[in-house]
Design a protein around this nucleic acid. Structure first.
Lengths: 340, 340
DNA sequence: TACTTTTAGTAAAACGCTTTACTAGAAAAT
DNA sequence: ATTTTCTAGTAAAGCGTTTTACTAAAAGTA
């Protein structure tokens, strides 16, 4: 069946100890002659040590678990790219779990990852996580580093990677206002409304700071998808009877849907309605007109998540840092200056 | 440290054999009393068997390796979703590798996956793979099922999942012609031109069948990305001095870039130039105007890849089937009927 | 009663590696 | 010449399971 270290040892006329030592550059020195002989046999038989046998002793799975709600979401795939890119050269591999936004599945995956002895876990989700995840016995006992990219939804002391959502939205809405807009709509993630996420707070506070009355008819919600943005925008159009000049979308994908909904309602971007998105995905640049959007460094977030995990693996005593990423308004062509 | 089966056995006053048997419902029957006692201890100590120790004996890693060139590419992320969705409930997990279109990296990942004893490998790539992958000793010896989603690029007898690219493109170009177009541009993947892929052959043959002269100035290439489509379209515009009325894009993402390039050149879609894409991604529906595109069942391809792998795992003797997926032209608003 | 069968379990091997502790013989030191 | 040190290795334990082959005691049977 599989070639084992024993086969190599036998064929090279040495002990398994010797083979192991030579392969791992450990222990006492060996004569160049035996070294070559062993290496030659290894090469001839195309021997590779058994991953499981090795791990049983060394307890280094060199595997990271990552849970995302939707791989096809451009934000999360960019994040995955960042994570993968860091682990790439280091011999770590990632087990990817697509939770489909289902908390039950997230929990199941989490447990499976723990069972598989991953050395670290990254959970990216806008959902509330259960105690079973956040205070998992195994994870605590075995010091498995956990990093959350969760928009600040879950209480946690370390390993939180956040984006300045509040400031991001605030700067976008402020930009609308500075461009002369007063009737500013806001479409956001489902379920967020009542729990007042950072994003909507940024919106509300900015309005307040500029003494603009908040109009509930200008707010609507939907999933953070193109379809979601389309529906939510349609709803805003109906609710307000087209009485708005700007719309802030909780992410770029919603903005794509918003464009469509506006077009169908005979509202032109930006002549009739100005639009701002959030994320700064590649697609934003290619929308017509190019979308003004609040950029967040998605790739970097993934990259840092990976880095923090790795640091924590190498330094188990240390706590995992938190990090807040800045946003930046990318001004493009989807916002019109209002001259009234 | 970790709780082992020995701890459980000791605390429950039985042998490890008993614990193992009870946990796996194997071997002779045990009295309900001991069963409960063992189970209780297992629960109390929150015991989980060690994945590596188990695998060492059972040799079932329940892990699948998947290599894609770019996770952020909507086609591949959809594929991943399909694969993940099939393995999801079955306790299999997938190790995801993002090769960045680098053949060297593909080979390295492949070897790592083999080393990690994955039970199956799915490679989705438009690249030529090395012999080291296609005729890998380990994979052959250990009968690791391999499925290729490679647009037919690599010679292989089994485990090939293909799409009717030729027919897809042909039907799109034919549609252009039926709508009165004669000057039809084609933008395609880099490097494909000289190796005459299925896609360009579909284009060329269709032109020929309708007695339309093929004009090399109407062909251009770029990566299968928005940026790539943008550049390639720009090039076509220059080369032909705007002398074309339609453009076929090798994928939807290129079409997004094409829209942008056309817009910048003051060419309106579809009034001045009609556009067709390939893939049928969600985004196509939200483009303005909505993109007419050749749909391919991306999710299903992933799903079947997973299914075939699993069938092959359960049935090692059997060969892995090939499968060809049909395409379908989704007519939307990006093609104008020419009346001349 | 004396044998057989069943019940309820156990001991020990095996999986394929790494690692610790040891050693025979050669070379160096006294 | 004897002891010490160095060289080039090896034997065997151990990692945490599963599994095979076995067994003592209880129950059933003739």
């Amino acid at each position: 069946m599989k070639i084992t270290i024993k086969d190599i040892a036998e064929k090279a006329g040495v002990s398994t100890t010797t083979v192991s030592h030579i392969l791992n550059n450990k222990g006492s020195r060996f004569s160049e002659e035996t070294r070559q002989r062993v290496l030659k046999v290894v090469d001839e038989l195309n021997y590779q040590p058994d991953f499981f046998a090795q791990n049983m002793i060394m307890k280094k799975s060199r595997t990271i678990g990552m849970i995302v709600p939707d791989v096809t979401d451009l934000f999360f795939s960019k994040l995955i790219e960042g994570v993968e890119s860091y682990f790439n050269s280091l011999g770590y591999m990632i087990i990817l779990c697509n939770s489909k936004h289902d908390p039950k599945l997230e929990e199941k995956y989490f447990q499976q990852l723990v069972y598989r002895s991953v050395e670290g876990i990254i959970i990216a989700t806008p959902n509330i996580l259960s105690e079973k995840i956040l205070k998992n016995d195994d994870v605590l006992r075995r010091h498995i580093p956990l990093v959350l990219i969760d928009m600040g939804k879950n209480p946690r002391e370390q390993g939180k990677l956040l984006v300045e959502e509040y400031q991001g939205v605030y700067s976008g809405v402020k930009y609308f206002i500075e461009m002369g807009h007063q009737k500013i709509a806001f479409i956001q993630e489902v379920g967020d409304y009542y729990q007042l996420s950072e994003r909507i707070t940024g919106y509300l506070n900015c309005l307040e700071d500029y003494n603009i009355d908040y109009n509930p008819q200008l707010i609507s919600e939907g999933p953070l998808t193109m379809q979601g943005g389309y529906q939510a925008t349609k709803q805003v159009i109906e609710q307000s009877q087209k009485d708005f000049t700007a719309i802030f979308c909780s992410n770029d994908q919603m903005a794509v849907g918003a464009y469509q909904a506006l077009l169908e309602a005979d509202l032109r971007v930006p002549d009739d309605v100005s639009v701002i998105g959030f994320d700064g995905l590649e697609i934003a640049r290619y929308m017509a007109p190019a979308l003004t959007t609040v950029y967040q460094p998605t790739f970097d977030i993934g990259f840092y998540a990976a880095k923090f995990i790795l640091d924590a693996i190498e330094n188990p005593k240390q706590r995992i840092p938190n990090k807040i990423f800045e946003t930046k308004l990318l001004v493009r062509d989807s916002v019109k200056r209002l001259t009234n």
